[in-house]
Design a protein around this nucleic acid. Structure first.
Lengths: 200, 200
DNA sequence: ACCTGAACACCGTTCAAGT
DNA sequence: ACCTGAACACCGTTCAAGT
């Protein structure tokens, strides 16, 4: 006889994300997730394929949230201002959810990789701002430079790699200004023959 | 009666690293490491504290190797040239050992963190080159900008984050040139009042 | 002093049986 | 149609017993 679900996929993902954020990946056990949504571990397999699938769904959820925040932080009309704001939003997200943030970029097993369209959606506002700043034909390489710096800085910060003292806040603002200046000042960044050869 | 060791710590770390590099972290089981050094799993605990300790030792080993390669790639006298070479060495190392490289920067559990002095030793040549390039008082912030970009770029590359096509090689060279230009051209990077106020 | 088999705790996953 | 207890496979770790 059909019985209504006692839990749901969003409930499970939400419960899993809360455990991951508070206690880390190794505490994300099927039994604990199940307990937090009011069922037993085997029941979870009616809603998700396996634990790796759950981790991937949690990563998707986090990327979607980050993307929404990036989009909300942009749109002022000044691309340079937008990029500064997005870098700060990115960093703030990492500080709020350090364990999930690390997961997003470590992604050791293949199965945890977030969906391609979610990634594309999240990076769209950055691409748009860079396009106006650096010009259409250099959008991709310039955006990759910007995002690489931002992601690298925050990753190193969270990984505790900045152990030589100094003001990390000031280093972030310094890097932000330096990278944006480099992208604006294209002639300094890319040596190329006249005739507008594309970088691709 | 005392019996000589049938294995050793370096043997164990070497075997563990080989497994990790070829088959990933989840395949790094105590039984498999033990088998590869010719003993049974319980014997490993005579040489290491636990599995987390082994992972930390493997990460230490990798950082030491990377540091040696960075040092070997620098010292030409031209800091800009040295930094370009070190960025490429960094990236080449990541491509040769992608699974270990990801481990170095994800570092989800605290116990895997590499020793502070090994980290310091590995980053010394970068710091030195940046010091001559950007000037003493901005060494730290400039080095953090440079390393953040390099690490972020390679991490994203390995994580498969560059899914929008384009030439990743060209993007790397573009970013390298852009970041180095920004660090050399300090006045563009850091807006500050005259009178040489320190960034710190 | 190092190695081992046996044992324990824990966890992901499956499945037949319940409702 | 979903949930569950029981069971299985696997793994990290401990420990008493061997040499």
């Amino acid at each position: 006889m059909p019985t209504p679900s006692r839990t749901s996929l969003p409930d499970i993902v939400r419960a899993g994300r809360r455990i991951l954020e508070s206690d880390g990946l190794e505490q994300l056990t099927m039994a604990r997730v199940a307990h937090n949504v009011g069922v037993r571990a085997p029941s979870l397999y009616k809603h998700i394929r396996d634990r790796d699938d759950l981790i991937r769904l949690i990563a998707n959820d986090a990327v979607a949230e980050l993307g929404a925040r990036l989009a909300a932080a942009s749109g002022s009309g000044d691309p340079c201002h937008d990029l500064r704001e997005m870098a700060r939003v990115h960093r703030a997200f990492a500080h709020e959810h350090p364990l999930i943030y690390r997961l997003l970029w470590s992604q050791v097993p293949e199965q945890w990789r977030v969906d391609a369209d979610l990634n594309a959606q999240a990076s769209a506002p950055v691409l748009q701002a860079v396009a106006t700043l650096a010009g259409e034909c250099e959008t991709l390489v310039a955006a990759r430079t910007f995002v690489a710096w931002a992601q690298g800085f925050v990753s190193m910060e969270l990984a505790g790699a900045f152990r030589l003292g100094g003001d990390v806040e000031a280093a972030f603002e310094y890097g932000l200004t330096a990278v944006l200046a480099a992208l604006t000042n294209q002639s300094a960044a890319v040596p190329r023959a006249p005739g507008r050869r594309s970088i691709r």
